[in-house]
């Protein structure tokens, strides 16, 4: 298989993998249990949970590339990141349109007065400029600023995890799984960054 073909297969695979959660929930809705007794709540939980894991996967692309040396992985980083934004957008839309039905006074009250929603909103808003500036043109125009701007993704992931912890009442098992994954990935990045600095200092 030539290189271009391999990259195509990789991209197609990532597309499919990222669409699996959407496919499964659609199947459940139309042919399964209709998402149970409280479909709106189920959609909110599902989209939030999926957004966090896809975002975690996006954070994992660079460390995986560096560890494996498989440089083509860099070509799917934007794709995974945009899918994370897509699911986060669904999460936000489910809350605004289905759960609250655009009851803005209640929405504002939630965002202002309830820390877990404040934090979740911040996590989502941070992803918006990243999604908007993900095109080739913006990457070129922003240059080094782009790199700095896109470090927001770390803050977004951390806030997303905090949102998940604060949302759960008692059983924090699932938030801990995501926290562990995000923690490891941030740790790997910190390790690479420190190693680079250390090497630079010695040279």
């Amino acid at each position: 298989m030539d290189h271009r073909r391999r990259v195509f297969v990789l991209k197609a695979g990532v597309w499919l993998a990222c669409l699996i959660p959407l496919g499964r929930v659609t199947h459940r809705f139309f042919l399964g249990d209709g998402l149970g007794a409280n479909p709106i709540e189920e959609l909110e939980h599902w989209s939030g949970f999926t957004a966090l894991w896809v975002l975690t996967a996006a954070l994992g692309v660079t460390p995986l590339r560096r560890i494996t040396g498989w440089n083509d992985l860099q070509k799917v980083r934007r794709l995974v990141g945009l899918f994370a934004f897509f699911y986060a957008f669904l999460h936000m839309a489910a809350y605004l349109a289905l759960d609250q039905f655009f009851a803005w006074s209640f929405i504002v009250e939630d965002v202002v007065e309830r820390p877990f929603i404040t934090v979740g909103t911040a996590a989502f808003l941070m992803l918006v400029p990243l999604a908007l500036t993900s095109t080739r043109g913006w990457i070129r125009r922003l240059g080094r600023t782009w790199v700095r701007l896109h470090r927001l993704v770390y803050a977004s992931a951390v806030l997303g995890v905090i949102h998940f912890f604060w949302k759960e009442r008692a059983d924090t098992l699932r938030p801990w799984y995501v926290a562990l994954a995000v923690g490891i990935l941030l740790g790997v990045r910190a390790y690479f960054a420190l190693r680079a600095r250390w090497r630079g200092a010695r040279a």
Partner: peptide
């Protein structure tokens, strides 16, 4: 009297769309 993490002013009746 709201719950610290959500409003208690409205509720979703199971089976209904609007609160």
């Amino acid at each position: 009297v709201d719950h610290p993490r959500w409003s208690q002013a409205r509720e979703r009746r199971i089976g209904e769309f609007r609160r």
